[in-house]
Design a protein around this nucleic acid. Structure first.
Length: 106
DNA sequence: ATGCTGACGCTGG
DNA sequence: CCCAGCGCCAGCA
């Protein structure tokens, strides 16, 4: 029986290219649908490149953290550039975005 | 062990 | 539409 943390890491690592999961989805797959917050905590703690954190988005479809960086901690322009870069990266993987800049979760 | 924080989610005003 | 409150769970001091 792996820990919730271990499961979350496994799940995120195995997210295929061109696929995105919501924090809630990862939490649910890990066993606890309500542990979405914990998922975020785990991601921040495990900022390993092996973990495609950029493929994990919020329910709103808006991306947040990536490789240990939290968009909320960034300011204005940097924040926009940061998010934009992730969006471009995800686009190259086949993930589509709305005009609102949100991820289209299939 | 206890309390607070946070890359969250949902409901209500 | 924007903001506040509550719940839930893992990590850290």
């Amino acid at each position: 029986m792996k820990s919730f943390t271990e499961k979350v890491i496994e799940i995120v690592k195995e997210i295929p290219k061109g696929k995105v999961l919501k924090y809630s989805q990862v939490a649910e797959k890990a066993g606890n649908k309500k542990a979405s917050r914990a998922v975020g905590t785990i991601m921040r703690n495990n900022k390993v490149p092996q973990i495609p954190c950029h493929r994990v988005v919020k329910s709103d479809g808006n991306v947040c953290g990536y490789n240990g960086i939290n968009a909320k901690n960034l300011i204005n322009k940097e924040k926009l550039d940061f998010v934009e870069a992730k969006m471009e990266l995800l686009k190259e993987e086949g993930i589509l975005f709305t005009e609102n800049g949100k991820v289209i979760f299939s």
